[in-house]
Design a protein around this nucleic acid. Sequence first.
DNA 1: TACAACCCTACAACTTCAATAGGGTTATAG
DNA 2: CTATAACCCTATTGAAGTTGTAGGGTTGTA
Lengths: 186, 186
Amino acid sequence: MKLSKRGEYALRALIDFGLAQELGRPLLQVSELTAKEGLPIKFLEQILMQLKAAGYLESRRGKHGGYLLARPPENISVGQVVRLIDGPLAPIACVSQTAYERCSCPDEEHCGLRMLMLDVRNAISNILDRFTLADVVEVTMRKLRKDKVPLPFALEPLLARSSARPKSAKRPKKLNDPSPAEKVSI
Amino acid sequence: MKLSKRGEYALRALIDFGLAQELGRPLLQVSELTAKEGLPIKFLEQILMQLKAAGYLESRRGKHGGYLLARPPENISVGQVVRLIDGPLAPIACVSQTAYERCSCPDEEHCGLRMLMLDVRNAISNILDRFTLADVVEVTMRKLRKDKVPLPFALEPLLARSSARPKSAKRPKKLNDPSPAEKVSI
DNA sequence: TACAACCCTACAACTTCAATAGGGTTATAG
DNA sequence: CTATAACCCTATTGAAGTTGTAGGGTTGTA
């Protein structure tokens, strides 16, 4: 489950779109994204097109065009995005649901490696399939506010629209905070 | 954390060595392993050499040579083996302990993606760093016996030695059984 | 009608993966 | 003592994937 750069950029972009929507200005231009995140513009363009083709984003063409979320962030599963970009989550094909393939071992049913990797698969899925984009955005916003960091994507003078909607109180689901000393080496 | 073929073969081989030791015949030849597991002999040779260089295996040269475990299986962490072969477990370098690298995002401390990936990292490590080769071997043996599958690596006529040692009762740690219907798609 | 923005395809440099090739060295058996 | 089975070692290779870059084409607004 090594996340590719492509996958990383895709998720970073989606989180930005979620943030932007939350801040009342859902439409972002590719150039704004590359400015904030510092990544190659043509590469990001390809990724955004892929996300659009998959139904996560929609676009506006022409002079003041850009991209924005096509679906409510509560409805976008991180796991599905990762699958779209990087393929199955399972570390080995013989424990994958979406891309099962018999492996070369003689007795799959009694393969210790397979039992182990099934655990890993489930652990990954339990995180990535439970969290939605909305969860990630919410946690990010909370942390930004807590640390009084200036929020990104300030309202544009001309395109400012209805201010941030009141947010539904979601289950927080508790993402780990990276700061406290981590016990396990990885 | 996609496991490479190399990593897969390495773990399969180590499990076989663990099984073989448990069955009182720790030394296996490369040809026996490839016969049981059906994998390319020259490739496996390279992998076994790497495992030897890392201290997991030792070897006997000459006519009746072969490889065997160099350390007690309780002492071999699956996570460490995976790291040796496939590199860090973390899906993204900025949450890795053993290979931390600053990522390109502007504010690592408030990066939602990073928080998420830290959870994934910890979930993977909680499995792979807790399980030892001994655990995997034990679970495999139990399952083989339960289903009355003939045990592999029958004692050779000439080289038969002291029969299986009495096993210390280990914590089972419960590896998932792949058979029951799995709830989450991965 | 000019320009800013998205749209699309091709390809290239690089790396990794999964082997394959081709021997060299050692120790046992006979 | 010598043949042989087994491990030891290095190099190379073909395919695939990754990470972009290049070069425009199309659309809609000012």
